[in-house]
């Protein structure tokens, strides 16, 4: 358990000192969302209609930007070998790295999303659902992404390969995330979608670290 916190602390410290990754992710998110009013036009009703989808799709893409560094940096400087030789399960360390990744990318995205929702004229009824789906959804993105990031270790042009691997797996999160916000805007129940997302999170929580750790073991051979 101590080791879990140790690795979260190190990754947070690295992210804060390097700074670029988190800032880049949020900046990408903001800029891309701002592009939509230019592309689609400023009509409030159209923007309002597409706002849940736009926010979620751009959040998916933004969270993917930082994924290829998740294990790659540790892989290149030999840290991953030493992590694998730590007297604890590699799965625990993967959970630590995923938690740090979520804190430095998922959480800032969640904070930025309501501000951008205002920009897209999203109905105020959808805000709570937007925050709830982001809270449940972004950890899933980090977990599934970790699986992909571990699989492409050592591959050339891993970043492109990574998006091909990971994006199809993000589709359920996108469907239920947007569905919940749409339902909330129309004044319907959002419980079902949130529960389904919660179910995906609970399934990914043990399974993704197992798969990612297996892929890391494969990569170091």
């Amino acid at each position: 358990m101590n080791r879990l916190f140790e690795i979260i602390r190190r990754d947070l410290r690295l992210a804060l000192r390097q700074g670029s990754d988190s800032v880049m992710v949020v900046t990408f998110f903001v800029l891309t969302v701002i592009l939509f009013p230019f592309g689609i036009g400023p009509e409030a009703n159209i923007l309002e209609r597409v706002s849940p989808g736009v926010l979620w799709v751009t959040a998916l893409l933004a969270s993917m930007l930082s994924l290829d560094r998740l294990f790659q940096a540790d892989y290149e400087d030999g840290s991953l070998e030493l992590l694998a030789l730590t007297p604890t399960a590699l799965e625990v360390l993967v959970i630590g790295k995923v938690a740090a990744h979520w804190l430095t990318t998922g959480l800032p995205l969640m904070v930025a999303a309501p501000v951008l929702a205002v920009l897209l004229h999203m109905n105020a009824d959808g805000f709570l659902a937007l925050l709830a789906t982001m809270l449940i959804g972004t950890p899933i993105l980090s977990l599934i992404g970790a699986m992909g990031a571990a699989l492409v270790l050592g591959a050339r042009r891993g970043g492109v390969l990574l998006s091909l691997l990971v994006l199809p797996l993000y589709i359920p999160v996108l469907i239920f995330g947007v569905g919940a916000i749409d339902a909330a805007i129309q004044g319907l129940e959002t419980g079902a979608q949130l529960l389904l997302m919660g179910g995906i999170l609970l399934a990914a929580l043990p399974l993704a670290p197992l798969a990612a750790a297996a892929a890391v073991r494969q990569a170091r051979e």
């Binding site: 190190r10 410290r13 690295l14 000192r17 390097q18 290149e76 400087d77 030999g78 840290s79 070998e81 030493l82 030789l85």
Partner: peptide, 13 residues
């Protein structure tokens, strides 16, 4: 304790 070819040192720490 294993000391390999890579020194596993983070540049910003």
């Amino acid at each position: 304790h294993y000391v390999g070819h890579h020194d596993a040192i983070k540049p910003v720490l």
